[in-house]
Design a protein around this nucleic acid. Sequence first.
DNA 1: CTTCGTTCCTGGAAGC
DNA 2: TGCTTCCAGGAACGAA
Length: 273
Amino acid sequence: MPELPEVEQVRKTLLPHIKGKTITKVEVYLDRLVKHPSSEQFIKNLTGRTIEDVCRRGKYLVLKTGVNQKLIVHLRMTGSLVAQASDLEAPPYAKIKFELTDGVTMWFCDIRTFGTLYLVTDDDCYIAGYETLGPEPLTVGFNPEYLAPIAAKSRKPIKTLILDQTVIAGLGNIYADECLALAGILPTRIANTLTRAEIEAVHEAANKVIAQGIANRGTTFRDYKDGEGNKGDNQNHLLVYGRGGEPCKTCGEPLATTKVGGRGTTYCAKCQH
DNA sequence: CTTCGTTCCTGGAAGC
DNA sequence: TGCTTCCAGGAACGAA
């Protein structure tokens, strides 16, 4: 599922194919994916616009399509944005087609159709979840001094806390499990029981697993592909996610699985405390 | 206020 | 073999 490193990889691979190109035609095959405005207005207001830049905030892709207009896309579980030559046929599960100048077509595809798209202007459309995003990993705003008081006030499991996008923008189920494995902290630990040293370990581990995910061009478990349709490589470097029952890479004990906040969770009962 | 459960959706795996 | 059931999960939303 696309988390921060995957969305960043989509951004990077999409950028050279679509930046500076003009949207000549938009077709929406599944209206409910367009959350704002109506799909008719969405099509009308995007047609003729030029993609000035491709940015990312948390797990959201942000395409600047004018001084006061942005196309904001959340891929959720199985969404993808792929740029390819216009003479190629539609990829599987194509839901929205963006025809661009210079013979390029960008497709929004989605198997489970949880993805969401918004066309916003500065004074129109508040996206719940976007405005309230917390600091990004690997930025100065994300640091132990920021994280410690939040954890101290929370009675949630630490995994649930770091999955909260208002606390940290961009961690999903894969990188949350990886972060806690690297930090040596049990996912079920209640956030306010973590020591200062443990908070620092979580902070450092979050930065490391996100940086590694980006360096490995994202994690492809099943459906994730980047803006050029290629898979990532980080699935070959994971400590725990998807490895339940397999030996811990540190101690060799079989990795345990459980549910935390309704999410499948894998950890090492020997290495994580 | 915080925290928890439900909901959306499809394809693949597991179970009978 | 072939059918049915379950599960994966981000985040909005309603309920406690």
